[in-house]
Design a protein around this nucleic acid. Structure first.
Lengths: 192, 192
DNA sequence: TTACAATACGACCGATCGTGCTATTATTCG
DNA sequence: CGAATAATAGCACGATCGGTCGTATTGTAA
């Protein structure tokens, strides 16, 4: 029995692509079913509720993020190269055409940061993990004297994430061509 | 005839408060009408369409932003004090309890940055104006040698906006107490 | 190939969506 | 005060929402 999980995966993939553009709540089961090529009830049978689907989408996004952003960076040598790789992979992730709407987490956070529930909790947890991981990579680079010790690692992580968020707005709303250069310049100023 | 405009204003106010939490699309006319104390059709009569209501909400948000963030800062002496006031007023704006969901623009941008139309256009225009204004305030401070000339004013504005965005996520999703200190530290590092 | 379970479908539910049309109140002005 | 006008309510519309259920189809293991 393996037909089920495979179509379920296809549903989640399509739902994630839609979610980035429309938000998690903006994805409707009817529209999604049509996009996948299933009937609404046939699709719904894979999940007990819409929230279960949203959680699956969120899980998928976390998985992709680990695969595309975090893991490649962990293959780089510890220290500044790893921090740089984390940052640049994150920029690629935001700009990636495979995610036509930008970083799904940025979208989802804005949607759910004031809506208590399981989704918000998972969002907060993954966001904290990402910040902690980034900060620890920064801490290593500081011990190696590759990043100036003018501030604590959490502060540097805070500012790097800010630069990436500004990058997302510049790219997706304003369509500025030079915003990647801006983000990289910010990286150098923050870590230099 | 002044009953009309006054209830219209009440509608827009309520709609803005809801929009910050639910997004512009998330506000429904029925729910909004109930909140204002009108019938759905009575409320609808004030706007030809839902998009017209959304545009009015956006306009209201811009007005409040000018009143609460920009104008007070313009009363400060040109140079670093004005830049600092712009930044701190923006943090207050994000954290303000009167806007229980944070900065409406951050929410709206995530919702509409990949949805072409009038709303996206206005959003982009106001965002560009804000960045240009901030950059010009920074340029003055640079001429006065109150901000180091290590980067161009647009770059500094980019990084300040990033710090504010990181502040919003830290505050509203993660609920971190020290995030204002973090944002101010970022300000000092960026302008110092 | 048969039999059973997994999967998908179609019809349908009550609720709500945005949006008109019409009648009835309120309000403002002469 | 009365007439003109603006504001609001009532009602209904087609569409769509998330969700349920019984049934048909399909895939899989024996």
């Amino acid at each position: 029995m393996k037909k089920g999980p495979s179509t379920r995966q296809m549903i989640v993939d399509t739902a994630l692509n839609q979610s980035v553009r429309l938000g998690l709540e903006g994805v409707s089961l009817g529209n999604l079913a049509e996009d996948v090529g299933l009937s609404k009830s046939g699709l719904f049978a894979h999940f007990k509720s819409k929230e279960a689907l949203q959680l699956a989408v969120l899980e998928e996004a976390v998985g992709r993020y680990m695969r595309l952003v975090v893991e490649p960076a962990l293959k780089k040598p510890a220290g500044l190269p790893r921090v740089r790789a984390l940052f640049e992979n994150y920029l690629d992730w935001i700009a990636g055409e495979h995610e036509a709407g930008g970083c799904p987490f940025v979208t989802f956070v804005q949607e759910f940061d004031d809506r208590p529930g399981a989704i918000r909790d998972i969002l907060a947890k993954s966001q904290r993990q990402w910040r902690v991981g980034l900060a620890s990579a920064i801490a290593i680079a500081m011990e190696k004297r590759e990043i100036a010790r003018r501030a604590d690692p959490e502060q540097v992580a805070f500012e790097l994430i800010g630069a990436a968020l500004a990058f997302q707005t510049s790219l997706r709303l304003l369509g500025e061509r030079g915003c990647r250069v801006r983000a990289l310049a910010a990286f150098d100023r923050i870590t230099g």
